[in-house]
Write a protein that binds this DNA or RNA. Sequence first.
DNA 1: AGGCACTCGTGCACACGTTCACAAAGCCCA
DNA 2: TGGGCTTTGTGAACGTGTGCACGAGTGCCT
Lengths: 218, 218
Amino acid sequence: MARLPVYLRILSEQAELEVECISSDRLAELCGANAAKVRKDLSYLGSYGTRGVGYEVAYLVYQIRRELGLTHDWPVVIVGAGHLGQALAGYGGFGERGFPVAGVVDIDPAKVGSVLGGVRVRHIDELAQIVQARRVNIGVIATPTSAAQEAAERLVAVGVTSILNFAPVVLSVPRSIEVRKVDLAVELQILSYHEQRKATTGGLRSVGGAAGQRSASA
Amino acid sequence: MARLPVYLRILSEQAELEVECISSDRLAELCGANAAKVRKDLSYLGSYGTRGVGYEVAYLVYQIRRELGLTHDWPVVIVGAGHLGQALAGYGGFGERGFPVAGVVDIDPAKVGSVLGGVRVRHIDELAQIVQARRVNIGVIATPTSAAQEAAERLVAVGVTSILNFAPVVLSVPRSIEVRKVDLAVELQILSYHEQRKATTGGLRSVGGAAGQRSASA
DNA sequence: AGGCACTCGTGCACACGTTCACAAAGCCCA
DNA sequence: TGGGCTTTGTGAACGTGTGCACGAGTGCCT
């Protein structure tokens, strides 16, 4: 399920607050969801809570990390050293969460050699070397739209099996490759859609608590 | 539906290639989906294709833009001038797609005054002024996690009704505010999950054509 | 020890989204 | 004009995911 990462983040935060035990009710509240859904998700995971008490936070964190394959780091390689590539490399949040940046590559020789967030930009011809040396399985495409398909093919050719794609194109890759897409323009257009609906229906609006934060999934 | 933006992009591309008419089959192929799904989505939209021929691209583009509220620009304001905020402001793809950056604000006086992608960074106290002057309805949160909630509250206070949130937190806002979340770490963790499954099942992999690119929705 | 309050796990019904299959409708050509 | 080919639009089946409700197990207090 795509909700496990969310649970993991919430639970990690709770762990830092030294909360040892948490109920499905509370957990549901913290991630804006239904208590039954939380319980069902966690039961699918197979891990057990204790009735009458709740879930042991530390144990649950361990189980989810295990299920998500986060027991070890997954180095990633970023293709494209433009604005977005720079931002991603410099973000720093990746390394902390188990996804160290093994390298940043670009096809433009003028960009090679500059340093982003402690990582030197290398030429895309070195991609195979980087991937093999660090056993990289995950590639991030941060190139312009026109270069995304070629970037994907190069990543696949050197053995990358999962791709996070920021370019607004549908990549053509073998079925065995897992691709996830983040399209910022699409997100904005969805917001625009809701704005437009608010404007045209012109009705009054209910003001309530916080719940339901649409996010990426499926 | 969250798929309309995808259709719009594909159709716009086809329009530039001077394709005047397109069938649901072809359209489905281009966006990696099912033909029946495409037809149902478009019929929900109410717009009509012609049987035996297909859909008129230009008309469909107009209809979708209309449905999504893209008949006029939606200026956005970016809160947070860190790496991500810089990348977003400098991206340029926003303006082209109808979301010009009305302003970038940050709470750090040291960052105020620098120029990102043609937009000068201003102090967050000027937020209200920017929003009212440019009639901004959409805010983008590109702050660190710890500042995201405050950023959201400030945006809501000055009248922003839609928020695109890049910080990995569930924002607490009134129900009337539309929030969409993009969490890069979650995306990577989902990829990690699939990598881990590949590794443990250890089975052989089918190699097929391109179809099915998971993306943000719901 | 017994009762009570609490919370997990889960069967079941419901709603939604997806897919199939087919009739209606349009175009082209003889 | 009529028949055949193509493609839309949509009703119906299917599968999935969601939410409710309740039994079962646990801890606490008397």
